Simulated assay, not measured.
Amino acid sequence: MHIAILSFDGFNELDCFVPLGLLNRLKPMGWSAELCGPGGMVTSMNGVNVQLQRPLEWANEADAVWFGSGLYTRAIAENSALLDRLQLDPTRQRFAAHGAGALLLARLGLLGEVPACTDGAARPWLVEAGVRVLSEPFYARGPVATAGGGLASLYLMAWMIWNRAGEPTARDVLGHAAPVGQKTEYIDSLLAQVRPFMATLTASGPPTSPPPSPPTSPP
């Protein structure tokens, strides 16, 4: 399982480094997550220079592609010359988008009619792009999952790992992020949000029908 974590200048460190660290816990199972993007180096939103591990086009070969947010996500979404380098295939790849990363999914035509989750800053951009934005932390349908909020990437990782490697493996990996003394309730809470979307998924392929929307809290 090879995951391309798209990393552009101005990227949000939480969106890239958290999945990079946790998904690579599965290296003994043949998983690998790598930072990929245009050029050889990018600078994060807080000025951290990062040497990329793969070129942008490697995302076309990966089994899954991770879209994070950043300072320049809206400008990147309008850069057709850059996005045209991505030739992604929803019939064989899975896509996870965190925050404003959902805007890139929309621009690439990967959302279709699927609603999306995002953060407050990116919400008007997605609405402008014609996307129905949910006031939920996580939503998934078929090969696409989106999440909104600083640490909502944990929902995306739970979805991705559970789908391909099973719930026990997802629990094990998430356990490395759980606060000491709160491991069980922390992981149970994460998986409870993802569980409704796993009902029709199997580890071998995409769902045969869309999962139901998760129950909403009363006003």
Rank of each mutant, 00 (worst) to 15 (best):
M1K: 01
H2V: 00
I3N: 03
I5P: 10
I5S: 03
F8Q: 06
G10E: 00
F11I: 03
E13G: 12
D15H: 13
F17H: 14
V18I: 15
P19R: 11
L22H: 08
L22Y: 13
L26V: 06
G30K: 01
A33T: 04
E34V: 04
L35M: 12
L35P: 09
G37V: 07
P38S: 13
M41Q: 14
T43R: 15
M45W: 02
M45G: 15
V50N: 03
Q51F: 04
L52H: 06
Q53E: 14
R54V: 01
P55H: 04
E57F: 02
A59G: 03
N60C: 13
A62F: 05
D63V: 00
V65P: 03
G70K: 07
G70L: 02
Y72H: 11
A77W: 00
N79A: 09
N79L: 05
S80K: 10
L82I: 07
L83A: 03
D84W: 06
R85W: 07
L86I: 09
L88H: 10
L88F: 10
T91Q: 12
R92F: 04
R94Y: 12
A100H: 11
G109R: 11
L110K: 13
L111G: 09
G112T: 09
V114M: 02
A116M: 00
A122C: 05
R123M: 08
P124H: 06
W125C: 08
L126H: 02
V127D: 11
E128Q: 15
R132D: 00
L134F: 04
Y139V: 12
P143F: 07
A145V: 10
G150R: 14
L151Q: 14
A152F: 06
S153L: 11
L154F: 11
L154Y: 08
W159Q: 02
I161G: 08
N163L: 13
N163R: 15
R164P: 12
R164G: 14
G166Q: 12
E167I: 06
R171L: 10
V173S: 06
V173G: 01
L174R: 03
A178D: 14
A178Y: 12
A178G: 07
V180F: 09
T184F: 10
E185D: 08
E185R: 15
Y186T: 07
I187F: 07
I187S: 08
I187R: 00
S189Q: 13
L191Q: 02
F197V: 02
M198V: 05
S204W: 09
P206V: 07
T208G: 13
S209H: 12
P211Y: 03
P212Q: 11
P215K: 00
P215L: 11
P215E: 15
S217K: 12
P219L: 06
